Amino acid sequence: MSDLSFFGPAVLGALAFLIRLPGLLRNPRDPLLRAVAMLLLTAAGVFLFGSIPMIAKVNEITGIANISAPLVYSILTAFSGSCIVLLINWRGGSPARIRRATRWCVGTYGLVIVALFGLFALGDAPVERLRDLDTYYANTPYIREMIVLYLVAHTASSLVMTSLCRRWSREVDGELRIGLYLMVFGYLVTVAYDVCKFSAVGARWAGHDWDFLSTDIARPLASVASPFVAIGFGLPLVVQRLKGPWWDWKRHRELGPLWRLLQNLTSDHKSPRVSFFAPPGVRVLQRESDIHDGFLTLNPYFDRGLRDAARADALARGAAPYDAEAYADAIMLTAAKEALLADPGHQVIASSEALQDGPGGDSLDLARISKALRRHSPAGAVIREGVAHAG
């Protein structure tokens, strides 16, 4: 199989880690950021050092035949532990429970890594094997135990992650559930990888040659599993990062009809321009501020009787109470703007001494009022005529 399938994920993992690094440096004690950073770093390491050219290069640089074996196994073990740690922090719970579970996981997988290098040091593997070390040394003392230990640790992690993700997926919905389903599939494929590896090694113990399971099937399975696991972890994080700006843009668009109705009601009031590069949240705040300024300008022209009649008409036609409120507010605002435009000298504003209640009272829903305006636009005379006719 082409090693591009290993180098590509390695590069993507390294880039993702670098993107996360500034946040980690700003908040080095954040356990979730640490878990994400470690997962990305070890994932990149697995694919980088697991590629055949890198395996040969590490052996060559160190001068130790097959030293890449415990190195790759250790990075893979660290990745397995990082997955569990991230899921522990991701799922949440009491800080004490999270710390206890994290320490247990890190300690266990840390001991496995130490044991891997210890067993390799005790064993004898003089012949460099780039693709089939697992099966070639399946009967070599200590090297055999090293291989079995890494496979057991990796299989245990895959089974634990499959179980945890499956159980958690029953409690959540949306993008998190989709991400967990993707991870379940990815880890099931990873279990298939482990089964192939165990089968090939076990065949060697029984005197058979099933090496193709390890060299020709297991490696492609690893490449298939990794995108599902990576996307499963990344999808909820990306969606959560994008959801805020998306909702801000959505609200900004929804407020458009109401904002346009209330724009530049008087010559001495102009809305400040918002930078083209301003984030969506700033744009929403500015648009809401403009709308409330418009309410203050139109306040002397509000016709509460018209609003009450419009609300009663909407309720009589079967509208929900909150929709009837928004409909009535839209009518009153439109009528107030027409009254202001019919008062070029602004005599009403000048003579107004007190403010009356604005649209909707304390339960004002700007987006719903804006939607009512869009649905019934042009709202002025047409709406008032409909209310008068219903009366």
Rank of each mutant, 00 (worst) to 15 (best):
F6I: 02
F7R: 01
A14I: 09
L21E: 02
R26K: 07
V36E: 11
T42M: 13
V46N: 00
F47S: 02
G50K: 06
I52E: 12
I52M: 09
I55C: 01
K57G: 06
N59D: 15
T62D: 04
S74P: 08
I75S: 09
G81A: 14
L86C: 06
L87E: 06
I88Q: 07
G93M: 12
P95C: 13
A96C: 04
A96F: 09
I98L: 13
R99T: 09
W104L: 10
G107C: 00
Y109F: 05
V112Y: 01
L116T: 01
F117R: 04
G118E: 00
L119S: 02
R131P: 00
L133R: 04
Y137G: 10
M146W: 06
V148I: 15
L149C: 09
T155V: 07
A156R: 00
S157C: 12
M161T: 07
R167A: 08
R167N: 10
G174K: 07
G174D: 07
G174R: 07
G179H: 05
V184D: 08
F185L: 12
G186R: 06
L188N: 09
L188Q: 10
V189P: 01
D194R: 04
G202T: 07
A206V: 01
D211R: 01
S214L: 01
I217W: 13
V229S: 05
V229E: 03
G232V: 06
G234R: 03
G234P: 01
L237D: 02
L237E: 03
L237H: 03
K243H: 07
G244V: 13
W246D: 06
W247C: 08
R260H: 14
Q263P: 06
N264V: 11
L265P: 10
A278F: 04
P279R: 00
P279E: 01
R283T: 09
L285P: 03
S289F: 11
N299E: 10
F302N: 12
D303S: 15
R304Y: 15
G305A: 15
L306W: 10
R311S: 09
A324V: 07
D329T: 14
A330R: 14
I331R: 15
M332P: 10
L333V: 12
L333G: 13
L333M: 13
A336I: 10
S352C: 11
A354Q: 06
G358P: 14
L364D: 13
A367N: 13
A367H: 11
R368M: 15
R374G: 15
R375I: 11
R375P: 00
A381K: 08
A388P: 00
A390W: 12
G391D: 09
